[in-house]
C-alpha cells in the first residue's frame, strides 16, 4: 500500500481473505440456483434411468457419476501440484497441472457432449439428446445449473493454463506462489459447488418421465 510495497506475506494474507469472501459471494449465486431447483422441481427431477446410450447401453444415470468422479480426481491432482510447488518440484508441478487440465476438459466434454447432447440434425447443431433447455422447468434449471458451473470450469481451466505457463518459466518459489494457491482453491471451489449440484440435479427426488415416452 505504501510506495514501499507491503511484504509478500501480508499481501498474501489479504488476498486469501479476499478470495474466500469472493467464494462466499459466489455461494449465494450457486445457492440461488439451488433455491430455484428446489422451488421449481421440489421432490422431483427429470428421470434418466431408462434412457440408454451407446453400443453398451449404458444408463444415462451413470454418466453424471462418471464425470463427477473425473472432477474429484482433478481436484486431487491440483492438490498434488500445489504440494509440488511448495517443495520446489517443478516437474511434478507441471505434470500435475496438465493432468488437472485434462480431467477438467473431460468433465467439460462430458457435460457438453453427453449431458447437453450436442448433435447435428439436418446439418444444424441442436441441443438435447436427453433434454433441451426449452423443456419447461426441467430443461431450464438443468441447463442453468450445469451451464453456470461449466462457465466456472472454463475460467478455472484458463487460470490453470496461466499458472502452468508461469510455473514453466520459473515464476513460483516455495515461499512465493500465491498464484498457484489461488488457482488451486478456485479449482477446488468449482469442485465443491459440484458436490452440491450433482445430487441436486441427478439424485435427489423422484425421477419424472418425459410425456413423450
Amino acid at each position: 500500500m505504501t510506495a514501499v510495497a507491503e511484504s509478500y506475506q501480508v499481501q498474501t494474507r489479504r488476498n486469501r481473505m479476499g478470495f474466500w469472501l469472493f467464494f462466499l459471494s459466489e455461494s449465494f449465486l450457486f445457492g440461488g440456483l439451488l433455491v430455484a431447483r428446489y422451488y421449481l422441481w421440489g421432490n422431483t427431477r427429470p428421470s434418466m434411468e431408462d434412457t440408454v446410450i451407446g453400443p453398451l447401453h449404458i444408463s444415462y444415470q451413470v454418466i453424471p457419476l462418471m464425470i463427477t468422479a473425473v472432477l474429484l480426481l482433478s481436484s486431487f491432482f491440483m492438490n498434488r501440484a500445489e504440494v509440488a510447488i511448495a517443495n520446489d518440484d517443478r516437474k511434478t508441478f507441471s505434470r500435475s497441472i496438465l493432468l488437472t487440465v485434462l480431467m477438467g476438459l473431460i468433465f467439460l466434454l462430458g457435460v457438453l457432449i453427453f449431458e447437453w447432447g450436442w448433435k447435428t440434425v439436418d446439418g444444424q447443431i441442436v441441443l438435447g439428446r436427453h433434454i433441451s433447455p426449452t423443456d419447461g422447468v426441467f430443461g431450464a434449471v438443468l441447463y442453468g445449473m450445469t451451464g453456470m458451473h461449466a462457465l466456472h470450469v472454463v475460467s478455472g481451466l484458463v487460470l490453470l493454463m496461466l499458472v502452468w505457463n508461469l510455473g514453466r518459466k520459473g515464476h513460483f518459489s516455495p515461499e512465493k506462489h500465491w498464484g498457484v494457491e489461488a488457482t488451486a482453491i478456485y479449482w477446488h471451489y468449482v469442485d465443491l459447488v459440484w458436490v452440491f449440484f450433482y445430487p441436486a440435479i441427478y439424485l435427489i427426488g423422484v425421477g419424472v418421465h418425459a410425456a413423450g415416452h
Partner: peptide, 13 residues
C-alpha cells in the same frame, strides 16, 4: 454432501 464439502474445504482449500 456436508461431509464431502467439509473434506474439500479443510484439506484441499
Amino acid at each position: 454432501i456436508i461431509l464431502k464439502a467439509a473434506l474439500i474445504m479443510y484439506f484441499f482449500m
